[in-house]
Write a protein that binds this DNA or RNA. Sequence first.
RNA 1: GUCAGUGUAGCUCAGCUGGUUAGAGCACAGCAUUCAUAACGCUGAGGUCGAGAGUUCAAGUCUCUCCACUGACACCA
Length: 509
Amino acid sequence: MDFTITTPLYYVNDKPHLGSTYTTIACDAIARFHRLEGDNVIFITGVDEHGQKIERSAKKSNKSPQEYCDSITQSYLNLWDRWSITYDSFIRTTSTHHCSLVYEFYQRVSESGDIYLGKQQGWYCVGCEEYKDEGPNEISPSCPIHKTNLEWRNEENLFFRLSKYQKQIEEIVSRPGFIRPQSRRKEINNFVSQGLKDFSISRVNLEWGLPVPGYTGHTFYVWFDALLGYLSALNRNTLPVDLNQLKDKGWPTNVHVIGKDILRFHSVYWPAMLLSAGLDLPNSIFGHGFLTREGQKMGKTIGNILDPLELLNDYGADPIRWYLLKDIEFGVDGDFQQNRFKDLINNDLANTIGNLVNRTTTMSRKWFNNAVPTFTMNSEDTSQLCTDCLATIKCVREAMYDYDLKKSSTAILELAVKSNAFLSASEPWTRIKDIMNKELVAYELYSVLESIRIIGFLLLPLLPDLGMKILNQLGITSIPITWKNNLKWGLLAKGSLLPSPNPIFNKIL
RNA sequence: GUCAGUGUAGCUCAGCUGGUUAGAGCACAGCAUUCAUAACGCUGAGGUCGAGAGUUCAAGUCUCUCCACUGACACCA
């Protein structure tokens, strides 16, 4: 089965920030999960490189827009590389094949009769770069933010006939599971029910964009450019573009993961555009929350921005991934707190999971010739730990299919807690003193090792490095492409050698 | 302003259709302890459930009012 997932195409107006890193990490975890499930995953990310802000930023740094884009885009690529993001396709909206696709798409929408020339009128604030709500009868209104006079603009733009799709969009938006999390659905429903208005898809005062064929001076406006990047990413470099072939390349996506701020464009504009072009619709749109830091919005003016590259250098990928995926519910706003971060990481990764691996392998090596204990058992294992493991596997998989990363991580951690409790209850270190108990101790330690093995596998999508280290401690060094045959009880080879214990995770300070 | 959502222990949150002393994890305190990364385990302290009023035998859970924060209210990504 194909599984296609996208991050937004990030606006290269500025250096990558933690927000885009968060989205990308979440998508990476989901993508890794589906690969292990055996799906043919296409994980798309990329950059949106057109627009006035970029033009301006470029000017500020004395570069041409293209040079500017090149440098910021490179920093995205570097960042994803450093974070070991396993994307399959990276799309730039300045690439020539993207341009061809936009034309092809435009052609189709045009043929559907959904493009027309209209006027964009209104009071415009140059500072905000946007039209204000003031009515046409106002006399010299001013911008509440900039306190400057608004100018009346009467601009010729191409429009997309969104209003034509009112009925269909209403139906699509109310499909269960289309907009996630559910809590955001009402918002969009509300918006749609107010009546959809056509929106403009071209600009005349914007140089840095794709020129609209047949309309000199017009360039495509953001949503008729950036959104199409998802299609270009699948089309790769194939020319000429054939939109009909997208079906074989992974379209439609299973999910567009985006920040909640651009939910409307993805759940309303985008489906309408796709309908017009005769293409299938994405299965779902997932709008996640925003991150704050110590309760405050992150921003340049406050100077409290967390730089993803610095975080990575300071702590490594796994701790940050764990914090973002386990402590913050995917879809809800989250807060990054240094203290909480430290406590959570040390507790979960070092004390609970790390120590579990360490103590168990140490005991096994000590009493069973540096190897996984051997014992005989003639009936099927129905121990509590075995049951717990199977339940955890089920829970984790279901949660991941539902994009519930928090639930999934929590379930894995709970298995580690249960395994620790199991050791405390069975006290192998006491029992082993009586040689008669050796068989029982062997069985119990084996159970815990087995549980650790399952924890290691289940952790692979969320914390790829730590998951691998755990498996290494069990002497497992190669990971199969899918885990279907590994997520079962009793697969750890009895008597196989265990490497000498090495803390898999060191506490952070 | 209109609409929606949130407000429960220091922190992050559970609490479905109202029903005995309001829960979990972390942080904190004590006990115990080596198999282990002073880790694990056990116990404990911590809340007038945003405020006020009302319905009810009974409300964190329903109604109303108010307060605080967040989001949406169309072309900023």
